[in-house]
Structure formats: C-alpha cells, structure tokens
Amino acid sequence: MDDSSEEIKKFILDKITSIEQISILVLLQQDPQKLWTTAKISEELRSADLAIEKRLEDLYSARVLNKPDSSEFSYSPTSEKIKSLVANLIEAYQRRPTWVIDLIYSRPIDAIQAFSEAFKIRREK
C-alpha cells in the first residue's frame, strides 16, 4: 500500500461513516457551484431526508461541504489537501469498492460500545 492509500485510509477512518456519504460526494462534486437541498439530494439518491441530513452535516463538519445558508449545501473542500483526498476516495471507491466498504464498516466499535455501556444496569455490591 502506498502513501496515498494510507492517507485515503486515514481520511475514511476519520471522516467517512457510510457509503451514502460517498454517494453524496460523487453527486455534489460533479457541479461544485450548484447548491443542493437535503430534499433534492434525497430525491436524487433515493434515500430518506433524515439520513441525508445527517450525512450532510457530517461532511460539513469534515470541511468538505459549504453551507451558505441553513438549507443548502455545495461541494467546497476547505483546502486543496481535502479536495485531493475526496477525489482519491472517489477513485478508490470506483476501483476498489470492497476495500473502501470494508474500511468503513470494520472501524472499531468503541463509540458504540461506550454508548451501550451508559445504559447497562449495574448491580449494587
């Protein structure tokens, strides 16, 4: 695995939590000037508004999307490095989808485990 693959791997593990996010990136990066609403993306990808809204907020937090107002998004990475990582991610997904899918869904479950721990009923000693 070369250095760029390691960078993509780190980007996926740090910022990408679903295949749906990649689908959104593919869609939005085709026309970076276009503004997209959650509803329009949901319609285009045939997905639920709520799911798309969560993915958009995650990508916005990852500094990949711009949000000029509260209801529209556009593809606008905040740096050339992020723009390059997204392009390489999309290319990797097109060439080696299984590798990308495995990375996304085999991430450590620490957060899930911590969440479930919070709801465990503990016995008094």
Rank of each mutant, 00 (worst) to 15 (best):
D2Y: 05
S5V: 15
I12D: 00
I12E: 02
I12W: 00
D14K: 12
K15D: 08
S18C: 02
S18E: 07
I19K: 01
I24E: 00
Q29T: 15
Q29E: 10
Q30I: 03
Q30E: 07
T38A: 06
I41Q: 01
I41M: 02
S42M: 06
R46C: 02
A48Y: 13
A48N: 11
D49C: 10
I52C: 00
R55I: 15
L56P: 04
D58S: 06
L59D: 08
L59H: 09
A62Y: 11
A62L: 04
A62N: 09
V64H: 00
N66V: 10
P68E: 04
D69M: 01
D69C: 01
S74Y: 12
Y75A: 04
S76I: 10
S76W: 14
S79V: 04
K81D: 03
I82A: 00
I82D: 05
I82V: 13
L85C: 00
L85G: 05
N88G: 05
L89W: 10
Y93M: 02
Q94Y: 04
Q94T: 12
R95P: 02
R96W: 10
P97L: 06
V100R: 02
D102C: 09
L103T: 12
Y105T: 15
Y105H: 06
S106M: 10
R107F: 08
D110V: 12
F115V: 03
S116Q: 08
E117W: 07
F119R: 02
K120Y: 11
I121C: 07
R123S: 08
